[in-house]
């Protein structure tokens, strides 16, 4: 019953975003990818497919994160500001079903975006004589997981702050999440116990986005231990569930005025 309500909200969220022409970015990203590939074939010798794969995965990652950030930040605030939320929560729909439906609907758009850009990258890479290891599927899965995690972070912050502040904070958390490991390895940090503890605490509490980045391993055909892959998958899943719980708690408490 409740799953049905989540499905309905997700379906119409997906439909609404799809009609807002957000997937036009796939066209422009694909076009950019082909352009870069053409340039790469002119200036690189022997490894244009590697450049294609590198740029393709980069574009895929950037585009997914951008969707999470810019659509996620208004996913709820737009509903509240325009009062469309009243039309839904005035019906027999629990608030958690509404918010989860919105998140799932937006993730549906992410999946379509990733599939289309992945296919574009694959086709160009194959045309240029490149080949893939199975790790490519983990890499793409992790890009999706990272964008889900960022989306949940953005939605959570947007329940507490306004749109501009939420965007800024989310970008900061994303950047820190990618650089925290490198920062922990800095000599300056290692020689300062307080700083080290601070970063350890940050690393423990806030999402470590760097964990999901497998692009270099794919491009250079390096192997990644399966234990790392499953540990990261578990980390992303548990962290996402944790964020969902906080989001549901906050949204249940929120005054919709």
């Amino acid at each position: 019953m409740i799953a049905e309500k989540i499905k309905i909200v997700a379906y119409y969220t997906f439909k609404e975003i799809l009609k807002s022409k957000v997937l036009l970015n796939v066209f422009f990203m694909g076009l950019g990818l082909m352009l870069v590939t053409y340039v790469a074939t002119e200036f690189t010798y022997g490894v244009p497919h590697r450049i294609t794969l590198d740029v393709g995965l980069g574009v895929l990652s950037l585009s997914s994160l951008a969707i999470s950030l810019f659509l996620g930040v208004t996913l709820l605030s737009k509903e509240i500001d325009s009062r469309t939320v009243y039309m839904v929560v005035a019906r027999p729909v629990p608030r958690y079903a509404f918010i989860m439906g919105k998140v799932i609907g937006l993730m549906g758009i992410q999946v379509i975006n990733v599939i289309l850009l992945t296919l574009t990258t694959f086709i160009i890479t194959i045309i240029l004589g490149g080949e893939f290891t199975p790790l490519i599927f983990w890499t793409i899965g992790f890009i999706l997981l990272e964008s889900l995690l960022l989306l949940l972070v953005v939605v959570m912050i947007s329940l507490l702050a306004n749109t501009i502040l939420s965007t800024l904070l989310s970008i900061i958390i994303l950047l820190l999440g990618h650089s925290i490991k490198d920062a922990q390895n800095l000599t300056l940090v290692k020689t300062q116990p307080f700083l080290q503890k601070l970063l350890d605490f940050y690393h423990f509490v806030l999402p470590g986005f760097y964990k999901f980045n497998l692009k270099d391993y794919v491009i250079y055909k390096a192997s990644v231990p399966s234990s790392y892959l499953f540990a990261t998958l578990s980390y992303g899943t548990i962290y996402s569930l944790f964020l969902c719980t906080i989001i549901i708690f906050l949204f249940n408490k929120k005054n919709l005025d």
Binding site: Y12, E16, S20, R83, Y86, M87, A90
Partner: peptide, 15 residues
């Protein structure tokens, strides 16, 4: 069992 219409309702424009 309740039907509610908010003041100046706005709807999903692309639906």
């Amino acid at each position: 069992n309740i039907g509610f219409l908010p003041e100046r309702p706005y709807f999903y424009p692309t639906l």
